[in-house]
């Protein structure tokens, strides 16, 4: 493995009394795509929400363990806002801000940071929209509301929004689950390119998608990390019988 970007040590999480993650430890290599798979309710979403401190926004949420980004513990040595700027997130359901134009959606994060330089913002908008393949579809009218786009376009807009702040890690929570197949294909090919800039951690309920887009795969089951390794190995020669059952589609 090359250098590790993000290290998770002994991470457990709760909602009130209910434990949803049980002492998970793993290391995410830099500039790779890592897929998180597992049946629904296995703690996938909670797991990645612990990685950018979104978990703590939910009432009754509690976390124990360490998450280390480039040698710094995100819970004790960094501020939540800083963490979330460095670790971007794309959600299950596309969530462009309905009160903002396409343009303002892309630069929302930069504007929060106080960047007002018009030329710079223009440049970011164009380059990020090109990167997600949306530029040609929307460049005629960037003042339109982001909510007017189709579902697939909205999701790519949200990816552009997350990329605009140049995050070092990008978390994606089933980004294609609400999209049609052709939009899904576009986002999948986008994911394979994104690893040139950032470590991409993507949750998917679709094992085929994990096989298609990821370099590494982690399999979670009932809050436990069952197996983690190169995607090829996980799919071709899983060590754990549970993993084998899951990737071959024999339980779900």
């Amino acid at each position: 493995m090359s250098s590790n970007k993000l290290k998770v040590e002994d991470l457990s999480a709760w909602f009130y009394e209910k434990q949803v993650l049980n002492r998970v430890s793993l290391e995410f290599p830099d500039k790779k795509v890592i897929a998180i798979i597992g049946p629904s309710g296995c703690g996938k979403t909670t797991f990645i929400r612990c990685l950018n401190r979104m978990h703590e926004l939910t009432p009754g949420a509690r976390v124990r363990g360490r998450v280390v980004l480039d040698g710094k513990d995100i819970y004790t040595e960094m501020d939540a806002m800083e963490v979330r700027r460095k670790i971007g997130m794309v959600f299950q359901k596309p969530n462009p801000f309905p009160n903002m134009s396409i343009y303002d959606n892309v630069v929302a994060g930069l504007k929060l940071m106080g960047i007002r330089d018009k030329a710079l913002l223009d440049k970011v908008v164009e380059s990020k929209l090109r990167e997600v393949g949306l530029w040609d579809e929307v460049s005629d009218d960037l003042r339109r509301s982001g909510a007017q786009l189709s579902g697939g376009q909205q999701q790519r807009l949200c990816i552009a929004r997350a990329l605009a702040t140049e995050p070092e890690v990008l978390l994606m929570d089933e980004p294609t689950s609400s999209l049609d197949p052709s939009s899904t294909a576009k986002i999948e090919s986008l994911v394979r390119v994104l690893k040139n800039h950032a470590t991409v951690i993507i949750i998917t309920h679709n094992v085929q998608q994990a096989a298609r887009v990821s370099d590494y795969t982690a399999f979670l089951y009932l809050g436990d990390l069952i197996e983690f390794g190169e995607t090829k190995k996980i799919f071709e020669s899983p060590k754990n019988p549970l993993t084998e059952k899951y990737v071959t589609g024999r339980f779900g």
Binding site: L57, M81, M89, N95, F97, G109, L112, T165
Partner: peptide
């Protein structure tokens, strides 16, 4: 999901209120 979208960009609570809740 809108609140979270804003938090995920590193917004403070007040920025979420101003940019998402108020509109």
């Amino acid at each position: 999901h809108l609140r979270e979208g804003m938090f995920a960009l590193g917004a403070t609570k007040w920025e979420v209120i101003k940019n998402v809740v108020f509109p």
